[in-house]
C-alpha cells in the first residue's frame, strides 16, 4: 500500500496542466480526485513517474445551463453533481447516478471528469454519458475539440484522450421530462456495479451497460429492438448481444449476461418503454 516514488507537480491553470503533461511524457498522469488512480498506485499496478495535480483548478468545477444541454465541469465532485438543483431538474438520471457512486467519502473527493477519463467499464458515469449521447470537451496544446461519448471509450481503460489532453467539460442533453432508469446490481452499496444499466426514453431509446465488456458500452441490440417496436421483455433478450462480459471473482460472464437481461427489462419497464 506504499506507491513507488513519483514527481508531484501542481498545475495552477489548465494551460499549465497541458504543458506539464507534455513535459512529463508517457509516464505522466493527471491527478484530480485521486479515487481511480491512487488505489492503483498503492497496489503498484500503476507507477507514473510524474503526477500533475489539477485538483485546485476550481474553474473546472461548475454546472452551467447551456440551453439544450447542461455543461458540467470535469472537476465537479460527485457530491456536487448529485446535490445540484439544476442537474436534478434537467438531467435527473445524472444526479441520481452521481449519488450512487462509492460512499460519501468517495463522492466528496472523486470527480466526474476523473471517473469518465479513467474509462473503467465498471464505473457508472460512462454509461450515463453513453445512454444520454453526451459530448466531451477535450483541451490540448493545439486547442479544444469535441468528442461524442459514443466514440470516446476505445478499449480497456483506454479513451480517445491524447496523452497531453485534458477532459474539461461534459455536455449532457437535457432530458426534458423523458423517463429514465438506472439499475445498479451490486452486493455492497459502496462497490462498483457487477452489472449496471442506464436507460432513457426520449422518443428513441438510449441504453448503456456497466461492466458488460472491456469498456463502457451501449446495448445496441436493445436499442435496435426497441426501435423496431419490441416490448421491454423482448428487447431485454438482446441485452448482451455482441458483448463478451468479463468473468471475475464477483460474477461469471454467464451470470452477467443473465443479470443484464433482467436489469435491462426492469430499466425499460421503469423508463416506460
Amino acid at each position: 500500500m506504499i506507491p513507488s516514488s513519483f514527481e508531484y507537480r501542481r498545475a495552477s491553470s489548465l494551460a499549465e496542466a497541458i504543458t506539464m503533461l507534455g513535459e512529463g511524457g508517457d509516464d505522466a498522469k493527471l491527478l484530480a480526485g485521486g479515487h481511480s488512480l491512487l488505489p492503483l498506485m498503492k497496489l503498484r499496478l500503476a507507477s507514473p513517474t510524474v503526477l500533475v495535480d489539477i485538483g485546485r483548478l476550481r474553474e473546472l468545477s461548475y454546472v452551467r445551463d447551456g440551453g439544450d444541454h447542461l455543461a458540467v465541469g470535469a472537476l465537479t465532485r460527485h457530491a456536487d453533481v448529485h446535490n445540484s438543483d439544476v442537474v436534478g431538474r434537467e438531467v435527473p438520471l445524472l444526479a441520481h447516478v452521481a449519488g450512487q457512486i462509492g460512499d460519501p467519502q468517495v463522492r466528496h473527493r472523486g470527480t466526474i471528469g476523473g471517473s469518465i477519463a479513467h474509462g473503467d467499464p465498471a464505473s457508472d458515469l460512462p454509461a450515463v454519458c453513453l445512454a444520454l449521447r453526451a459530448t466531451l470537451l477535450l483541451a490540448g496544446p493545439s486547442g479544444e475539440r469535441q468528442v461524442p461519448a459514443i466514440e470516446f471509450f476505445t478499449g480497456f481503460l483506454e479513451t480517445a484522450l491524447a496523452r497531453d489532453e485534458v477532459l474539461t467539460e461534459i455536455r449532457f442533453p437535457k432530458l426534458g421530462g423523458a423517463r429514465w432508469s438506472f439499475q445498479k446490481f451490486n452486493v455492497r452499496a459502496q462497490d462498483w456495479a457487477i452489472v449496471g444499466v442506464a436507460a432513457v426514453r426520449n422518443g428513441s431509446a438510449g441504453v448503456a451497460l456497466v461492466n458488460m465488456a472491456d469498456r463502457p458500452v451501449l446495448a445496441t441490440g436493445v436499442e435496435a429492438a426497441l426501435a423496431a417496436g419490441a416490448s421491454p421483455e423482448e428487447a431485454a433478450a438482446h441485452a448482451s448481444d455482441g458483448l463478451e462480459p468479463p468473468s471475475d471473482v464477483r460474477a461469471s460472464g454467464e451470470y452477467r449476461r443473465h443479470l443484464a437481461t433482467v436489469l435491462v427489462r426492469r430499466a425499460l419497464e421503469e423508463a416506460g418503454a
Binding site: R188, D191, R250
Partner: peptide, 16 residues
C-alpha cells in the same frame, strides 16, 4: 489468493 484486497474481499458496511 483472489480476494486479496478489500475491493474483492467483501467486508460489509452498515448499508448492507
Amino acid at each position: 489468493l483472489l480476494t486479496s484486497t478489500m475491493i474483492d474481499y467483501l467486508v460489509p458496511a452498515a448499508s448492507e
